[in-house]
């Protein structure tokens, strides 16, 4: 990629990533098993299953929960290829890097499986090391899948509101909601600014020049957000805001929500209490 295109591609890629990952609620708007659940219950169910995955020492059990995730994804009209892409792209990248040292006998002594030399250093992969790396990977994969499932099937602002069941202060939830609201506005500003630059100069003469333009725009965006913050606060005051935000929470729970939650708690109790799985 040429240096000239680097800045352009970076700006467009970042904006597009935020649009798709943060602002897309296409799946949350669909009708499906998880979309129909009350967000508060869904949050509790996922949280309970996460705890079960965390406490479990049985890889088959964790894989079963992962299988359950895939079933939930199917029942919630989520494209499985999309779901796997979302959960697997960063998985090998991060968790395998973290788990890599555990493969070797330095950290996991035990029965040798493979041995080799790198830069004169003798390294042995042990059976125990390989097992703990796989275990770690599967646990992270299942946990990430549960979280992605929650995020995909719940509108972000509803999810934020549901955080109130964990006693997250209202002002915090509201501020997050406003951040979410204005991310889009600033993405537009960034894209329009970039287009305006492009319409005038098309190509920046050097990478250094390009970096200068980007730095200037970051400063300008910061200034705009500062001005906007003051204006938004005025708009809030104008409509009666008095430092204690009040919202209208409209959740609709059903008997199915209770059943799902009871099942999740039962799984956790079996894992933690009786230690049978």
């Amino acid at each position: 990629m040429s240096k000239r295109r680097f800045i352009r591609s970076s700006i467009l890629a970042v904006c597009s990533f935020i649009r798709e990952s943060v602002l897309s609620d296409a799946y949350a708007a669909k009708k499906g098993l998880l979309q129909a659940r009350d967000a508060r219950f869904k949050l509790l169910i996922i949280f309970t299953l996460l705890l079960a995955v965390l406490f479990s020492k049985n890889i088959i059990f964790i894989l079963s929960i992962y299988g359950l995730c895939l079933l939930f994804a199917l029942a919630s009209s989520i494209n499985i290829a999309f779901f796997l892409k979302r959960t697997w792209i960063f998985m090998p990248l991060f968790s395998l890097f973290i788990a890599l040292p555990a493969l070797f006998d330095i950290f996991s002594p035990g029965q040798p499986l493979v041995s080799f030399r790198i830069f004169g250093l003798s390294l042995i992969i042990t059976r125990q090391g390989l097992m703990s790396a796989i275990f770690f990977f599967v646990r992270v994969l299942t946990s990430v899948s549960l979280c992605v499932l929650l995020a995909l099937t719940t509108r972000h602002y509803v999810l934020l509101k549901a955080l109130r069941i964990f006693r997250v202060p209202q002002v915090f939830v509201m501020t997050l909601g406003m951040c979410y609201r204005y991310i889009y506005l600033f993405i537009e500003v960034v894209q329009n600014t970039y287009l305006a630059i492009r319409s005038r100069v098309e190509f920046v003469s050097s990478l250094k020049h390009g970096q200068g333009i980007v730095a200037g725009n970051i400063a300008s965006l910061w200034q705009r957000s500062y001005v906007l913050q003051n204006q938004v606060y005025s708009a809030m005051l104008s409509r009666g805001y008095m430092a204690e935000p009040k919202t209208m929470d409209e959740f609709h729970m059903s008997i199915k929500d209770w059943i799902f939650l009871a099942m999740a708690i039962l799984i956790l109790v079996l894992v933690y209490g009786k230690n049978i799985i």
Partner: peptide, 30 residues
């Protein structure tokens, strides 16, 4: 605040909630 209402020139300033419904009911709730 109950007696005087201002509609700002820039609607993006005034619409700060995640959804339209929440924005509309923000004032009376406060």
């Amino acid at each position: 605040r109950q007696s005087v209402g201002l509609v700002f020139q820039n609607s993006d300033v005034q619409l700060f909630c995640p959804t339209v419904k929440e924005d509309i009911v923000f004032g009376p709730l406060q």
